[in-house]
Design a protein around this nucleic acid. Structure first.
Ligand SMILES: [Mn+2]
Ligand SMILES: [Mn+2]
Ligand SMILES: [Zn+2]
Ligand SMILES: [Zn+2]
Lengths: 160, 160
DNA sequence: TCCTTAATGGCAATGGTTTCCATTACCAAG
DNA sequence: CTTGGTAATGGAAACCATTGCCATTAAGGA
């Protein structure tokens, strides 16, 4: 099993240990799958991938590990409206950079976009500051998604 | 049962009929509950409220009607992370104005905010335009939520 | 190497949402 | 107003992602 660079402890080991969590093969396998994922995976997607290399690891462990990862802020959990949660490595790892989502309400396709992010982040920063003060709320994260019809579904539906 | 103003067809009747849907007591009751709601209701919340006036209406009808309303764009469906969908009348009706959400990841409390909305909308318009062109996507809606710790949960947790 | 205890896996249980189908009731036509 | 075609309904069963339970395993500090 390739482990990122094949040697030393992974980038997340420290964080894990620091919170009292143990490093296990299952957890390494799950992080590995998430790290090399190029799309948004469901718990079962991850289970299947992990299963090919480690058939002993159960779906329950996938859920448990994902919950920890989400709480640690290492992974984001999304609801794209298809009835199952989707997971994606948080920025900070090489693979994923901060981005937002474009979701087709018809075929459920999800597009990551990083364009315009700079302007958005700029405004978000201000908004977060204002909201924090007014509502005495400590903002730690945000979710921005645009919904509509994708390229293909647009054609399938009406003209225009 | 008060019906908004007590006479003529409701504001949504036209839209409903236009799409080939029939007007039924159940649907009127559900819209009525949504119209006078002051918070985000789950399907069951709506069922309970409707049930006091119309005990004959079942939970299944609530779900079916909500699906139609969401598809028509009259109602927004949200996932605030507590395991059940929440519904809210879309703007356009008197009650609800366009707003975004502030969600406490600890107690799941949701705050509607309309502050800073103007600046946000301004940027969103530009972003939507850019995204539409680049990805050939027809954007019809957006979702913006900030996550963090609310006033109370902040105190309960660590100091600071 | 040993021991404490976090972690695990399989399976049952949970619970929100959907499906099914026989019955009801809109509402357009006459 | 009455009628008929069919959309809408309700009750209960089915669905299915996620969680709980508990006996067993294995991290990893001593
Ligand atoms: Mn993404
Ligand atoms: Mn709201
Ligand atoms: Zn699509
Ligand atoms: Zn809170």
């Amino acid at each position: 099993m390739p482990r990122g660079n094949g040697q030393g402890p992974m980038w997340w080991h420290g964080r894990f240990r620091g919170c009292g969590y143990r490093i296990t093969v299952g957890r390494e396998a799950i992080l590995d799958v998430l790290t090399r994922a190029d799309k948004h995976l469901s718990a079962e997607d991850i289970y299947i991938k992990v299963h090919t290399a480690y058939p002993a690891i159960g779906l329950t462990t996938i859920y448990r590990t994902l919950e920890i990862l989400v709480n640690l802020g290492l992974v984001f959990k999304f609801d794209f409206g298809d009835g199952r949660a989707r997971y994606e490595l948080a920025e900070g790892s090489k693979r994923s950079a901060h981005h937002h989502h474009l979701i087709c309400t018809d075929c459920k396709r999800v597009i990551d976009y990083t364009d315009f992010i700079d302007d958005e982040i700029e405004l978000l920063k201000q908004t977060e500051k204002g909201l924090s003060e007014k509502y005495n709320f400590m903002i730690t994260n945000h979710l921005i998604q645009f919904y509509g019809l994708c390229d293909k579904c647009r054609k399938k539906k009406g003209g225009d």
